[in-house]
Write a protein that binds this DNA or RNA. Sequence first.
DNA 1: TAAAGTTTTGGACGATCGCCCAAGTCGAAT
DNA 2: ATTCGACTTGGGCGATCGTCCAAAACTTTA
Lengths: 192, 192
Amino acid sequence: MANVSAERGRSTRQRLLDAAVALVPEVGWSGVSTRLVAERAGVAPGVVHYHFASVTDLLVAAGLGVTEALLGRLATELRARPDIGEAVEWLLGELSRYSGTDPASLLLVEMFLAATRLPELRERLGEQVGRFRAMVASWLVERGYQGDPAVAAALLAASIDGIMLHRALDPGLDPAALGGPLRAMLGKGAPS
Amino acid sequence: MANVSAERGRSTRQRLLDAAVALVPEVGWSGVSTRLVAERAGVAPGVVHYHFASVTDLLVAAGLGVTEALLGRLATELRARPDIGEAVEWLLGELSRYSGTDPASLLLVEMFLAATRLPELRERLGEQVGRFRAMVASWLVERGYQGDPAVAAALLAASIDGIMLHRALDPGLDPAALGGPLRAMLGKGAPS
DNA sequence: TAAAGTTTTGGACGATCGCCCAAGTCGAAT
DNA sequence: ATTCGACTTGGGCGATCGTCCAAAACTTTA
């Protein structure tokens, strides 16, 4: 039978995934090494290559797991809000809760860059982002957005990630203050 | 006397800086090694540590040089445009000319992440970004922007970088198409 | 031309890397 | 109690890392 310890508490595999997620923001995507992640997970170095074919495989699996969870959470939260303006406010409020060096936001940016050099990650992460944009677009339409919803969704997603990126450099930047122009952006359709 | 070869053609030091700039988008910030950059520059491996105290020092100097030049160019171009909407159009047009894996845009993102773990880079890059935001803010005021110019500048800068980031993942994303909502964002002041 | 200074060379050093594996541990099935 | 398969251990392998340095090559000064 398969691993039994998987049913009680976090399995070794999950411990490795969690350790990888925690380490990427600390030492960077390529700074995560076999021994480092094993030490963080509290296991022997060799165990990494028993559960994963390579360190890269571990990082890809760990990263995509986090983004998939984030995606689901955002979809649920957005759907629960009937008004676009209020949803934007909530979104920026969430961003405010992150410190500039927050693991989650830095992980996402690291993944974007890593995807540039890893075709498999690029494809799978691109698929996730595409799904997110599609979800936001239909969400905008349902709430009466009058412009091109695909364009607005793409710009909104890019803006959110850009704010995360700038906060990594300047934690003093307050996302909540950006609500004005951001709501203005979604308040009317595309002119030309 | 000081290096004379610096006066005729690119000095060895400049060749190293150029090689580093070209390599960062290819192999990542931490993927740039002594031997790699020396080979790309066409010099012996040891020369790197003659001109720079460490590879990190080389990368910081190379990166800040590029961003400083970019900053100056953007300032000049923006000042030459009297209308906000037209300037946004030009900005997005410039972004369109980059492929998703364009060296310049990827370098900037790599620097943001590296700055997270390098206090000196963080401070100097943060100062540059701050100067850029201040420049854009006063530029907006001169052109009659009615909202909080600092907020708009911060959001505009973050959005631009976010678009770059998303284009790294999805080169099919067309920046020019985002002009509508982006102009809407800058077309009115902050409501509340 | 000789001496002094500057720049370049190519390899040495110890540390760490990813990946691999023979041996050991442990629970489940017989 | 014994066998078996899943899992873990800790170290070995060759490669590459950042850094350093003595010697060679080149430039400028005297």
